[in-house]
Computed example of a mutant assay.
Amino acid sequence: MRLALPDTFDVVLLQGEAECFLDQDVPGDAAEAFATKFGWDPRAEEGPFLYVRVVPKSVRAWRGEPELRGRVIMRDGTWLE
């Protein structure tokens, strides 16, 4: 799975393994950590929600075109910087 966050100027590109959990199946500690961080608990809402956990294998980050080269900051799950 690849995720590109947040926009086209300041970019973080994660590549890794993704695991999906329905709201009723998400591990309790992960759901609590999410709710604490964001101040919102999808488990309390009506309708189904999907949690996605991504374990990054590589991460690239850059700001604009001048920084496109050499922006791998994680490879094979190990931070390079």
Results as ranks from 00 to 15, higher is better:
residue 19 E to M: 02
residue 44 A to N: 14
residue 1 M to W: 03
residue 2 R to A: 03
residue 13 L to I: 08
residue 46 E to Q: 14
residue 30 A to F: 11
residue 11 V to D: 00
residue 14 L to V: 11
residue 33 A to Q: 11
residue 54 V to W: 00
residue 50 L to S: 08
residue 67 E to V: 01
residue 27 P to A: 10
residue 78 T to H: 05
residue 5 L to D: 07
residue 60 R to V: 03
residue 31 A to D: 08
residue 42 P to G: 04
residue 45 E to Y: 10
residue 40 W to E: 14
residue 51 Y to A: 08
residue 79 W to C: 04
residue 32 E to T: 13
residue 38 F to V: 14
residue 18 A to S: 10
residue 33 A to P: 02
residue 35 A to H: 05
residue 16 G to R: 07
residue 17 E to A: 07
residue 25 D to L: 06
residue 67 E to M: 11
residue 68 L to Q: 00
residue 80 L to I: 01
residue 18 A to N: 10
residue 47 G to K: 03
residue 39 G to C: 10
residue 56 P to E: 01
residue 66 P to Q: 10
residue 70 G to Y: 09
residue 25 D to S: 11
residue 7 D to S: 06
residue 58 S to R: 15
residue 33 A to L: 07
residue 69 R to L: 14
residue 56 P to S: 03
residue 61 A to I: 08
residue 52 V to P: 04
residue 11 V to K: 02
residue 25 D to Y: 06
residue 66 P to Y: 09
residue 14 L to A: 09
residue 24 Q to G: 01
residue 37 K to R: 15
residue 49 F to E: 02
residue 65 E to Q: 08
residue 60 R to M: 13
residue 25 D to V: 00
residue 30 A to I: 15
residue 44 A to L: 13
residue 32 E to V: 03
residue 30 A to Y: 11
residue 34 F to W: 08
residue 45 E to Q: 15
residue 63 R to N: 13
residue 79 W to L: 11
residue 12 V to Y: 02
residue 67 E to I: 00
residue 76 D to I: 06
residue 47 G to Y: 03
residue 76 D to A: 12
residue 15 Q to W: 00
residue 80 L to K: 06
residue 40 W to A: 09
residue 67 E to Y: 06
residue 74 M to S: 05
residue 8 T to N: 08
residue 53 R to H: 09
residue 36 T to P: 04
residue 61 A to D: 01
residue 33 A to M: 02
residue 13 L to Q: 06
residue 5 L to H: 01
residue 18 A to Q: 12
residue 68 L to V: 14
residue 62 W to R: 13
residue 45 E to C: 06
residue 47 G to A: 02
residue 29 D to R: 14
residue 31 A to E: 03
residue 10 D to T: 12
residue 54 V to I: 15
residue 72 V to D: 01
residue 19 E to T: 06
residue 73 I to S: 07
residue 52 V to S: 08
residue 7 D to L: 01
residue 35 A to Q: 05
residue 8 T to P: 00
residue 18 A to D: 13
residue 21 F to I: 03
residue 78 T to S: 04
residue 71 R to C: 15
residue 37 K to A: 15
residue 11 V to Y: 00
residue 74 M to E: 02
residue 57 K to A: 06
residue 56 P to C: 01
residue 66 P to W: 12
residue 49 F to V: 00
residue 3 L to I: 14
residue 81 E to P: 04
residue 51 Y to H: 08
residue 81 E to C: 05
residue 69 R to H: 12
residue 35 A to T: 09
residue 75 R to K: 15
residue 53 R to I: 07
residue 27 P to D: 11
residue 76 D to C: 05
residue 36 T to I: 08
residue 64 G to T: 03
residue 51 Y to K: 11
residue 49 F to D: 05
residue 36 T to C: 09
residue 16 G to C: 04
residue 68 L to Y: 11
residue 41 D to H: 05
residue 2 R to P: 01
residue 15 Q to F: 01
residue 37 K to C: 14
residue 70 G to P: 05
residue 75 R to A: 12
residue 29 D to M: 06
residue 46 E to R: 13
residue 66 P to M: 13
residue 47 G to M: 03
residue 63 R to T: 15
residue 48 P to T: 09
residue 9 F to W: 10
residue 22 L to F: 12
residue 26 V to R: 00
residue 78 T to R: 12
residue 26 V to C: 10
residue 40 W to H: 15
residue 5 L to C: 06
residue 22 L to Y: 10
residue 45 E to D: 15
residue 47 G to W: 07
residue 45 E to F: 11
